[in-house]
Design a protein around this nucleic acid. Sequence first.
DNA 1: CATGAATGAGTTTTCATTCAT
DNA 2: GATGAATGAAAACTCATTCAT
Lengths: 206, 206, 206, 206
Amino acid sequence: MSPKVSQAYKEGKRAAILEGALHCFTEKGFQATTVDDIVRHLGISKGAIYSYFSSKEEMYIEMAEDKMGAMVDSLSEQFKSMPSAKERILYLFGRFRGQSLGELRQWLSFHLEFMLYAARQPRLTERWTQYAGKAIAFVQRIIETGMQTGELRADLDAAQASRLFWSVRDGLALQYLLAGADTEYGQAIDESEKMVFRYILGGDGS
Amino acid sequence: MSPKVSQAYKEGKRAAILEGALHCFTEKGFQATTVDDIVRHLGISKGAIYSYFSSKEEMYIEMAEDKMGAMVDSLSEQFKSMPSAKERILYLFGRFRGQSLGELRQWLSFHLEFMLYAARQPRLTERWTQYAGKAIAFVQRIIETGMQTGELRADLDAAQASRLFWSVRDGLALQYLLAGADTEYGQAIDESEKMVFRYILGGDGS
Amino acid sequence: MSPKVSQAYKEGKRAAILEGALHCFTEKGFQATTVDDIVRHLGISKGAIYSYFSSKEEMYIEMAEDKMGAMVDSLSEQFKSMPSAKERILYLFGRFRGQSLGELRQWLSFHLEFMLYAARQPRLTERWTQYAGKAIAFVQRIIETGMQTGELRADLDAAQASRLFWSVRDGLALQYLLAGADTEYGQAIDESEKMVFRYILGGDGS
Amino acid sequence: MSPKVSQAYKEGKRAAILEGALHCFTEKGFQATTVDDIVRHLGISKGAIYSYFSSKEEMYIEMAEDKMGAMVDSLSEQFKSMPSAKERILYLFGRFRGQSLGELRQWLSFHLEFMLYAARQPRLTERWTQYAGKAIAFVQRIIETGMQTGELRADLDAAQASRLFWSVRDGLALQYLLAGADTEYGQAIDESEKMVFRYILGGDGS
DNA sequence: CATGAATGAGTTTTCATTCAT
DNA sequence: GATGAATGAAAACTCATTCAT
């Protein structure tokens, strides 16, 4: 009656499969990755995958949700002990800077392919917009706080500003998806930081 | 021994095929579009397609190159008779505003899917970056002009600023790929315009 | 624009595929027959089959419907010029006798497997009962005519009697599905004929 | 070194497995039932099944043999204390009537599917015909007795008549496999009883 | 002993590409 | 030249059976 392998074992295996699959997806893309690719990469059998996930698509969706959830959660965690709005936004830019272009490209290609995939599937579209909404709301709250404390200019539309913040970030990442060196990218982030602060602070942002 | 069909006929047909294929690719994506879809949409034979293009992939690549070239060319054309940098940039924002979300989404999904596709193929990556470079250079020249005339603040890095410009534009489009209404999107463009002008003008952008 | 092969060619091919598939289904059963079996038997490609039929199941269903339709139609045709009820029923028994056990077994195993298959699929169940209903109605009409002309006893329930007629026929076939010689089977039909006539005629059936 | 588990325990378990498997086979059919279905239904492990049966097929065959044996044995038992042939045959009809259509359908689909299965395997065909032979012989003996006592008409061929008896019964069941209500079915049995008695009794069966 | 995770050959179905007509 | 039927190599997914724990 009792299972021969522990719950922990199963979760570990499940995680290992997801990781292996992610590796393949980032390398070749979701559509182009075959289940055989994943199987070969992991050195397990096809059946093993299907005993943990009901389809290739399910793996993909869970993976995307894990990623999105993790991102939002980790940010929320970080910010518990960071009161100033300015500081928080600076922290976010620091985080962007901390990511190498290599990592960024992997993350971004996964992210974009999934968006395109979700865009054709109403069921996923909604799921996705919820997550995107969380990220927007997250920065929006920071901005609102900053507006109340007077750190940020009072006539901002916090929601709009949050959207713009993410637009700049995502758009910049997009610029460097295909080409560019880490140093250039770092400078571009610096400059985008300036633009954003010029926009959210009163005066000329200096 | 004149050719049975004129050169013009062939070019027309070729263009018609590309157009039909583009329609399908934007609707379902490159990978998900079958040659049969295209054939059905165009009402021609499979053989016809393969006598103009050697593979589905080739159609895709040519199409993407056409699109990219057309965008850059059309902008260049427009600007011959528009001297002021500020005016030109305003014109660009106007153009963004002029595009409905529906059109934007179609264009964007094609664009993104192709970027992802190109990202895995060195040969295409280079081609793509050339095009992207043209768009950057294009706005960069506008900014440089503006800096010289004093319209824009003198301490800008024109190349960086151009990149930021496109980042904002692309990032904003990305925000609205999956969800959002046309009016919201219009307001977001307005706001991004403000942010960009705040950044490129001296003072607070007002 | 015009197809390169005639409509007749396509219908012929379609029929050939159905015939080949039927051969395999009768030999191994529907579930046990693989598409590869059919392909191998016909010497065509897998794709060819799927360009004529959308699935293995569809082939099966069409085949069954053809068979059922053909049976009912052929009987109806025969009987246009056969006025007497007794004569008609005798003719039916003659027809049963005319079929060799080999043929019967093929027909019956196909028939039974399809019934079982249909029994698990509500959509097919209805289709099937319609056909079965036709066969019942067919004999029922014969019986009703016979009752009116006085050939058959007046206190029969024509519908019930028709059902019994087919029960005897099907049940007998079932008896010989697995074993038995043609001669025995012929005698059994003779005897069943006697039983049925004893039942539908007045008196003792002699 | 006595066995860890008693012989009785093993037999019980074995029987329980067969019963659970039967439940699944009647519900979905042999081919469509997976070992996982059985395991899930019984709440035991896959290994347990394979320690009692060497394959899914073996379970199926044993099950069928058990069923067939049980049917014949139970009838033989019942009839020890029932002298009259007429009474015995009436009893058989009563038994048929006693079975609901639901039960009948389950029994019949199992029975038919196994016949079809056996029809393709010479080894099973023989086994099956032995059992079928027992059922025939069983009714045949009743008829012979009846003929001797003068209950039934003297010019019957007892073997043939027995076959016809079963034909009527099986054929009728077949009629109601896919559709029909219990009441109709009951009436059909009544009527088939009349037909059979008309046939085996002297005169007009009244 | 019992368990159930793992295996991998086998299944149906798809679709870019070819080539006889 | 144009056509579209035919090809067949993949692809995703299933499931009877095994065997390490």
